[in-house]
Design a protein around this nucleic acid. Structure first.
Ligand SMILES: [Mn+2]
Ligand SMILES: [Mn+2]
Ligand SMILES: [Mn+2]
Ligand SMILES: [Mn+2]
Lengths: 218, 218
DNA sequence: GTCTTTACTTTGATTTTGCTAAATTATCAT
DNA sequence: ATGATAATTTAGCAAAATCAAAGTAAAGAC
């Protein structure tokens, strides 16, 4: 069995690689994501490579092997199903489930996981709109647009918030931008790197960085 | 934060001490309960003592300090509430919850625990009939009698099975001796160390050892 | 093209938890 | 008492995960 630490490294490598769309993830990013000093990341990634979960090229970066990819999706499935369960069945707020899932994902049994999946009716997305990989390890490639790409002056549905930071999430929640809510982008100014939008009847403005993290569908 | 290992040692020391009603627990028993070699138990117990959780007397045994006692009850509360939750809300069988709780007890947050407690309506016993310590760390001292002490030819209610072994538990379940079920002890033969009983209309017989682990109330 | 800054790797140490095998102590039977 | 047996402790070692600090390589600045 992979340790909780190994699972977190593999998951994080997957997530970073997926997010910036690059295969080789730099060690610095890995260290950052896991909150360790760079030397620790180097050592651990070498161990992951020795275990056949990753490919490591010094001074280039790390990528997942097939085996590592499979593990990453399993961990992600556990994480996201747990989040969904906490919200649906235990009255958690979607902005506060991440930390709890971060721990539970490593100890929950296959049996409990599948029971949760069944109770929830085999959900395909978690409370943040993140897709949940299937038991067999497939994940839907969603074609969502962010606030930076979507059409203006059209009513759109918030589909996903691509960030786990509790501060950001509770700002999103307080602004009525939860997954499922409706928005209209009224203006996008690329020189000011700012986006104007209308949600819950309120006028709001967000900067490029934050706007990129909110994904919508029509 | 105490590690999962420390929590398990402390919990086990509490349980053994409680069970045999002796303050100083021998190292051999600790090692057995935790599935480690005796030398490992000695080393760990010394560490527990250094951390102020236990008192260790070489060649005599280990006992809990006040601090250790508080921790033991917290862990036990988590363990038993989780077991109850798995049975009540997730359709687990009471004979198969122990292993799952053994892991979850170390990672569940205070917040999740209290939410579970509330959803279950603040239960006082777990699926095995084991008492659940309160949030403030009090546990009811129950006055239950075992099959070896209870009166004969009276209808009694099974209140608790004092053993976590899945094999034993599923034998109990299959015999219709779940907590809550009714039994009548029809005969006790001390020379044969055997007990005859009637449950679910079936005649059964158990040996001293097994009979001592089934507790009843009137 | 050299120089400086930044990113990354190496080395050596530490903590926690475990093992094996040898040494020690206590207990029990004779 | 004495020797055998059982329980416990010690000593020495190892794996996993981490850090601090020093060394090395690559990239960007001038
Ligand atoms: Mn995690
Ligand atoms: Mn999520
Ligand atoms: Mn445990
Ligand atoms: Mn129990």
């Amino acid at each position: 069995m992979p340790s909780a630490t190994v699972e977190d490294y593999i998951k994080q490598i997957y997530l970073i690689s997926d997010q910036i769309g690059i295969k080789e993830v730099a060690m610095g990013r890995v260290a950052d994501a896991l909150g360790v000093v760079p030397g620790t990341a180097t050592t651990m990634v070498k161990a992951l490579a020795a275990a056949g979960l990753a490919n490591y090229a010094p001074r280039v970066g790390v990528s997942l092997t097939g085996q590592g990819h499979v593990l990453a999706l399993h961990v992600l499935r556990r994480h996201r199903l747990i989040e969904q369960f906490l919200v649906e069945q235990l009255g958690y707020d979607w902005s506060e489930v991440h930390e709890e899932a971060e721990q539970l994902e490593h100890v929950i049994s296959e049996r409990l996981l599948e029971r949760i999946d069944k109770i929830l009716g085999h959900p395909t997305v978690d409370p943040h709109g993140d897709p949940i990989p299937s038991a067999s390890g497939e994940m839907s490639e969603s074609q969502l647009e962010s606030f930076l790409q979507c059409p203006l002056n059209k009513t759109l549905r918030i589909a996903r918030i691509a960030d786990q930071n509790p501060d950001f999430l509770s700002y999103i929640a307080r602004s009525g931008l939860n997954p499922g809510a409706s928005v209209t982008i009224t203006l996008r100014d690329s020189r000011a790197e700012s986006v104007q939008l209308l949600a819950r009847g309120q006028q709001l403005s967000m900067g490029w960085g934050a706007a990129a993290k909110v994904l919508v569908e029509r």
